[in-house]
Design a protein around this nucleic acid. Structure first.
Length: 415
DNA sequence: TCTGGGGTCCTAGGACCC
DNA sequence: TCTGGGGTCCTAGGACCC
C-alpha cells in the first residue's frame, strides 16, 4: 500500500444534465440550452449549455434572469429519472476501472487508482482510456483530474474542462494551487471569499502569509487544512480521506415551493402529508429508520425556520413522520402568514431496528406491508393514485390543480 | 436578479451526566 | 454558594456543493 504514491482521479461529467437532454433530443446540440424549468417559472437554472454560458447564464441563477440574459435559449424541464439512469451507467464504467469508486454526486466521482499502473498504465494513459470508454458506453463527455489527493484531483478536473484530462504530478501540488483564485477551492464560497479578501488573501498562495492562529480562529479546522494543502502537505480531513469509505446516507428530505404562496392550513397540511409519504417511501426503499424529524418552513419574505424533534424509537412510517411534522408545524407556523416553502427532513438513521417491541412489531409489519403495496401502486399508476390522506379534506388540491392527470414528470417540482 | 431541491458538514449553546 | 472540565446529545442555523 504505502509503497505507492496515492493516485486519485476525479471524474466530472461535462454539462451533465444538458448532455443527457441532448441524448433524448439531438436537436438541442450546439444550442443555448437551460435545464431546470420554463423561462417564466419560479425556480433556478440546474444546468446551462456552454453556448448559454457565453451569455452569462450559470447554474443557480433564477430562470427569469437567465431568460433576460439569453432570450433565445431553449428552456427544458429537468428529468431526474434520466439523470439517475445515466449516472448508473457512468458508475458501471468507473467501477470497471477501479473497485474504489465513490460517487460524490450524480455526475462526479472519485477513484482511487493507487497501484493500478501494471493494469492500466501510467495515470495519463489510464485516464485517456477511461475517458474513451466513458464516451463509448454513455455517449457522454467527461473531464478527469489526477492528483495525490481529492482536493488536487477535484481542482484539476475543473481546469481540464471541457472534455480534457489534467495530471498534477506528485510534488507539484503547492505550485499548482498557489496562483489559483481562492474561490476555485471547493468549500470556499461567497462568504469565505469575502472574509479572505478582508485579510488580503485573493489567491491560494496568499494563505501562506497568514498566521496559523488567524486561520484557526476565522476558519476552524477546515482553514488549517486548506493552508496545509496550499503548502503541499498531507492535510488530513476530507482532503485526504479514504475514497469509498462510509457513503451511507445521513439524511433524507423532500421540500416543495408553491407557485403561489399560501396560508391555507388544509393545503399546507396536505403538502406535509405528501412530503411525509415521499420521505417514508425513501426510508423503506433504503431499509432505514429515522429518529429525528424536521420541519422546514419558509415564509413569503423568505425568512426560514427549521424545527426538529427526536423520537424515542426510530421510524419509517409515513403516518408517524407526518404526525410529528404536523405538530411541529402547528406549534410554529405564524398563522395567516403566507408560506412559500414546506419541507420534511429526517435524519439520525438506524439500520433495521431490532429494538422494536415484539407487541408492536406485528402492527409495524402490517403497516409496512400496506405501505410497500402502496409504493408499488404509485409506481404503476402515478403518485396521486393512492394516499393515506385520501380521506383528508382538501388533500392534494395543489397537485390536482397543477397536474390534473396526476402524471409524473410534469415539471421538476412534481417529479 | 426575486431567489429549486437534494444533500453534507460545521458551529454554537443548552441540557445533562460524571 | 459564587462556580471546573470534559463528553455527548439535541436543536437551530448557516455555508457550501451539484
Amino acid at each position: 500500500m504505502s509503497e505507492f504514491i496515492k493516485t486519485i482521479f476525479h471524474v466530472d461529467m461535462d454539462a451533465f444534465f444538458v448532455s443527457v437532454e441532448e441524448l433524448f433530443d439531438p436537436s438541442l446540440k450546439g444550442k443555448a440550452v437551460v435545464v431546470g424549468g420554463q423561462r417564466d417559472e419560479r425556480g433556478v437554472v440546474s444546468a446551462a449549455s456552454y453556448e448559454a454560458r457565453k451569455f452569462g447564464v450559470h447554474s443557480a441563477m433564477p430562470l427569469r434572469t437567465a431568460a433576460k440574459h439569453c432570450p433565445h435559449a431553449i428552456f427544458v424541464d429537468g428529468h431526474p429519472e434520466r439523470y439517475r439512469q445515466c449516472s448508473e451507467k457512468v458508475y458501471e464504467v468507473l467501477n470497471s476501472f477501479s473497485p474504489q469508486v465513490e460517487m460524490a454526486s450524480i455526475d462526479e466521482a472519485y477513484l482511487d487508482m493507487t497501484g493500478t499502473e501494471r493494469l492500466h498504465g501510467p495515470p495519463l494513459r489510464a485516464a485517456q482510456r477511461l475517458h474513451d470508454k466513458m464516451k463509448l458506453a454513455t455517449q457522454l463527455n467527461c473531464s478527469i483530474g489526477i492528483g495525490t489527493s481529492r482536493l488536487i484531483a477535484k481542482v484539476s478536473s475543473a481546469r481540464a474542462k471541457p472534455n480534457g484530462v489534467l495530471w498534477i504530478m506528485p510534488g507539484q501540488e503547492a505550485k499548482f494551487l498557489a496562483p489559483l483564485d481562492v474561490r476555485d477551492i471547493p468549500g470556499v464560497g461567497k462568504v469565505m471569499e469575502q472574509d479572505l479578501h478582508q485579510l488580503g488573501v485573493y489567491r491560494v498562495g496568499d494563505l501562506a502569509a497568514l498566521q496559523e492562529n488567524v486561520l484557526e480562529d476565522r476558519f476552524g479546522k477546515w482553514g488549517m487544512a486548506l493552508a496545509g494543502k496550499a503548502r503541499g502537505e498531507d492535510a488530513g480531513g476530507w482532503f485526504d480521506s479514504e475514497v469509498g469509505a462510509d457513503t451511507d446516507p445521513k439524511s433524507i428530505s423532500h421540500e416543495h415551493t408553491y407557485n403561489d404562496d399560501t396560508a391555507d392550513s388544509e393545503q399546507l397540511e396536505s403538502t406535509l402529508m405528501r412530503l411525509s409519504e415521499m420521505v417514508g417511501r425513501r426510508l423503506r426503499e433504503n431499509g432505514l429508520h429515522a429518529r429525528t424529524i424536521q420541519l422546514k418552513l419558509r415564509y413569503q419574505d423568505f425568512t426560514t425556520i427549521t424545527r426538529a424533534h427526536s423520537l424515542a424509537e426510530p421510524t419509517q412510517l409515513d403516518i408517524e413522520i407526518f404526525e410529528q411534522v404536523r405538530t411541529l408545524f402547528r406549534n410554529n407556523w405564524h398563522k395567516a402568514a403566507k408560506v412559500r416553502l414546506l419541507g420534511v427532513h429526517v435524519s439520525g438513521f438506524k439500520g433495521h431496528s431490532g429494538q422494536i417491541e415484539l407487541l408492536d412489531s406485528t402492527l409495524h409489519e402490517r403497516w409496512n406491508k400496506a405501505l410497500t403495496t402502496a409504493d408499488r401502486l404509485r409506481d404503476k399508476f402515478g403518485e396521486s393514485s393512492i394516499s393515506l390522506a385520501a380521506g383528508m379534506k382538501g388533500g392534494f388540491r395543489e397537485r390536482t390543480h397543477e397536474n390534473p392527470a396526476g402524471l409524473p414528470g410534469k415539471g421538476r417540482s412534481e417529479k
